[in-house]
Structures are given as structure tokens and as C-alpha cells.
């Protein structure tokens, strides 16, 4: 356990080295937040009805800012760290070290996520609340549920990224799968359009996929759209995907390890 804690701590510290890049990234999150903030205000103003698909304009605007805040800790972007070690062959030495390979990478991702929580998510949401009309949950218990849901979202995201990366044991070009995953995260996760606005026939499909557990579900929890039994269901849904992906990843990794032929040199 101590080892994984140290791995996470180093990963956290490594993120801090890119200070200018982080500031530029924060500015990008805020810019997209501002654009979509005004997009939803204009959409609601034009529609005339104060409630659309169960959401008020305040819900939509809050969704925009919370989503912009959490996409960095959850990390919905292309991520090739493991694929690159498979390509270079470094994966062999990582696999032979005395630690659990999956947990080693998960610890790295947790360190990264905690950094992004403090230096990307918090400032983005702060700006959304201070300068725009994003709301904060008034119930401290809801904060707790949101943190739990966010942690599960990171676990799901990591599971999908791990799976797409180790697919490069078989596929020679790792970028295609990773790029596809990135687009699916944004679309089916609800970042581009929250799933409650989706047409009735498409919504249940999107809500069953793991991507929903990465953005839509945590923001629903934040907004208080999932309470009581709904909250339990939401968290169970995330837990199921997180655990399912972990089991799948371990199986696939076992298959891959049996297949690896080291060329040496």
C-alpha cells in the first residue's frame, strides 16, 4: 500500500512541473465554460419554456461549469502512457517488477487526478460560481455524494483508458482506439449535450454505457437530480462499471502477458 501511495505522490508532483501548461489548460476550460454558458442561456430564452427535459436554465448552466471542472480530474482525453511503453518495450521491465501492474498505473492516475482536482476543477468551478450563475449544492451530504461519484467516475475513465492502451499488445496503431474513446467520452458522457436532452429512443442506450458514469452521473448527483434510491442506483451503476472494467482489464492483461515475446537487445 505504501508503494502505491508513493507512486501517486510522485505522479501528483510531476503534474505540478507543467505550470504554464496548466494555466493555459485552465483558461481553455473557462473559455469553453463561458461559450456553453451563453449557448444554453440563448437556447432557453428562445424556447420560451422555463423547464426543458426536466431542467431549468440554472441547471443547464451549472451542468456546463461542473462538467468543465471535472473533465480534467476524470480525464476524458487521449492518453497513451501505457501504449507508449508497449511500443518501446519498457512494459517488459514494468511487468517483471514486484508490484501489481494494474494498481501501479491506477495509483499514478489517482495522483494525477488529485492534482487536477485542486488546480483545474476547483478554480474552474470557482469562476463559474463567482462570475456566472453556476450554483453550489446547499446540502453538505450532497458534496459527499458528489465526491464519491467523482471518484467512481475516475475509476471508470481509468478502466477504459487502460483497456484502450493495452489493446496495443495486439494492434500496431494505438492512436485510433484512443482517439475513438476520446470522442465517445465527450458524446456519450453528456459533455457535448447532457443526456436528459437526448431523444427518448437514444437516451436509454447512452444511459446504460460506461461513459454516462463519467460525466452525466456525477453532475446529476451534484445537481441533486439523483436523490434517495436514485442516488443509490446512480452510485451502484458506476460501481458496477468500474469493477467490471477492472476485472476485464485483468483478464486481458493476463492474455497479453502470455503472448508477449521479448525481442531483447
Amino acid at each position: 500500500m505504501r508503494l502505491y501511495y508513493e507512486v501517486a505522490k510522485r505522479s501528483f508532483a510531476r503534474q505540478g512541473a507543467y505550470r504554464a501548461a496548466n494555466l493555459a489548460g485552465l483558461a481553455t476550460n473557462v473559455f469553453f465554460g463561458i461559450m456553453r454558458n451563453y449557448l444554453f442561456i440563448a437556447l432557453y430564452a428562445g424556447a420560451g419554456a422555463t423547464v426543458q427535459a426536466g431542467w431549468t436554465v440554472a441547471d443547464a448552466v451549472t451542468f456546463v461549469w461542473v462538467a468543465q471542472a471535472i473533465i480534467m480530474p476524470i480525464f476524458i482525453w487521449g492518453w497513451w502512457d501505457i501504449a507508449l511503453t508497449i511500443r518501446s518495450g519498457d512494459v517488459v521491465s514494468d511487468l517483471s517488477k514486484p508490484f501489481d501492474y494494474y494498481s501501479f498505473w491506477l495509483a499514478q492516475d489517482v495522483g494525477r487526478a488529485v492534482f487536477h482536482l485542486f488546480f483545474r476543477a476547483v478554480p474552474t468551478l470557482f469562476i463559474g460560481v463567482l462570475l456566472f450563475d453556476a450554483r453550489l449544492p446547499d446540502d453538505p451530504l450532497r458534496w459527499l455524494a458528489f465526491l464519491l461519484s467523482g471518484a467512481l467516475a475516475i475509476w471508470i475513465s481509468f478502466g477504459l483508458r487502460f483497456l484502450s492502451n493495452i489493446s496495443s499488445f495486439w494492434l500496431l496503431d494505438y492512436r485510433g482506439v484512443g482517439l475513438l474513446l476520446m470522442f465517445m467520452n465527450g458524446f456519450f458522457g453528456g459533455l457535448l449535450v447532457p443526456l436528459n436532452y437526448w431523444p427518448n429512443w437514444a437516451r436509454p442506450i447512452a444511459e446504460a454505457l460506461p461513459f454516462a458514469g463519467m460525466i452525466q452521473v456525477p453532475v446529476d448527483v451534484y445537481l441533486g437530480k439523483a436523490t434517495g434510491m436514485g442516488l443509490t442506483d446512480a452510485l451502484l451503476f458506476q460501481l458496477m462499471w468500474g469493477a467490471g472494467l477492472m476485472l476485464a482489464n485483468r483478464q486481458v492483461l493476463n492474455l497479453a502477458v502470455r503472448k508477449v515475446i521479448v525481442q531483447g537487445g
Binding site: G176, L180, M182, L192
Partner: peptide, 24 residues
């Protein structure tokens, strides 16, 4: 992948207009 992926952006616009009808 690029074509399909970016098509989700346009699909997002269609979903929004299906819900809201018009924009400004």
C-alpha cells in the same frame, strides 16, 4: 475515426435543436 468523432459534434447540435427548436 476523425470523421466519425467530429460527427458527434454535429450530432450534438442536432440533438439540441430537436429539444429547443431554434437558437436566437
Amino acid at each position: 475515426v476523425t470523421f466519425l468523432g467530429l460527427s458527434t459534434e454535429f450530432a450534438a447540435i442536432l440533438i439540441l435543436f430537436n429539444q429547443f427548436g431554434s437558437l436566437a
